[in-house]
Nucleic acid binder design. Sequence first.
DNA 1: AAAGGACGTTGACCTGGATCAAGAAATTTA
DNA 2: TAAATTTCTTGATCCAGGTCAACGTCCTTT
Lengths: 192, 192
Amino acid sequence: MYDLILSNVAKYIQLTDKETSFFTSLLRLRKIRKRQYLLQAGDVNQFENFVNKGCLRAYTVDAHGEEHIAMFGLEGWWISDLYSFLTNTPATQNIDALEDSEVFSIERSDLEKLYEQVPKFNRFFLKLLQNAFVAHQRRILASMSQTAEEQYYDFIRKYPSMDQRVPQHQIASYLGLSPETISRIRRNQAQR
Amino acid sequence: MYDLILSNVAKYIQLTDKETSFFTSLLRLRKIRKRQYLLQAGDVNQFENFVNKGCLRAYTVDAHGEEHIAMFGLEGWWISDLYSFLTNTPATQNIDALEDSEVFSIERSDLEKLYEQVPKFNRFFLKLLQNAFVAHQRRILASMSQTAEEQYYDFIRKYPSMDQRVPQHQIASYLGLSPETISRIRRNQAQR
DNA sequence: AAAGGACGTTGACCTGGATCAAGAAATTTA
DNA sequence: TAAATTTCTTGATCCAGGTCAACGTCCTTT
């Protein structure tokens, strides 16, 4: 049951058996049906969530009612509205499931206990965040220097499975492109 | 001399006198003249740098020779090519000074010593990174949902001093806009 | 199996911001 | 203070990708 999350943790820190069972005791398994919200904008994000199964997305809705995907969460990834979580303020992002999914959630106060009792978890979340930070910086630079086509192919090269699993217009929304543009990119590629 | 950096650290963690002096013993002050490189793409980024004075920028050069600014570093900010620093691989970013500047640098191996001897520094750098991550996520969502004009005014509202200190085309490069566009935005505002 | 949503495609058209080019103004350097 | 360089402005033109609208197909749900 805890295989995936424990191997995720083990990438960066080693836990004793006791630490492991303390950690898992803080986890709450939640099943999220397709289209169901894990978090709604306006609510405070109380959890760090590890995707154990399925696929979710975190997105904002802009002034014109358009959705923009901040991040996807596939199994093995962590997903939350970090700002809301850290500052205990209402979330600006929504998180919902693109497939029937399972997440392990840790509550804020429990995470603080974890940091206290097993300080190496500071290092673990630091590592996670370093990766996420670098990925986001690349995403910014990519959007400034690449065409729509380059961005799309880089995306499916980087996350080949996403292409099968999520509707094309969700990928468009992640990349900041219109669904029609993705469709035309694929048409052009096909005819080569 | 260490006022600014110590108050930066004190935002998130409390240090004893001993810890403080250990920390400062790891810092190396470097003076960087305007236009001088702190890091060149291709070299490995060996330092975390705290800007004590002045202003720097981290930028990439894309396939067409265009520069794109990943981040600015004003006094009180940390700046580095984090991916290069963490993985000990050649940097993709250049960092240079937009004004005569001073930075405190910590070498990678010294930072690891610091983490070991004063573990709360894990928490400190975690906090820094959390802020940076949130800022970057917002920057991505802003670039997807806002017009050039909105992005520009949000930028100068957020960093009013930058507008005075750095050439307009550097701000354009940060926002992913052309210098001409910024110029026209300002002209339109002026005539109102 | 029918009906109603999602989802993807295509064409026609539009537009925000890029690009190009030239010059003016400001700043730096000699 | 003159020359060189960098920065900013302006106009003309272009184009990548957005928008709008219509339709086809697939997938759910009943």
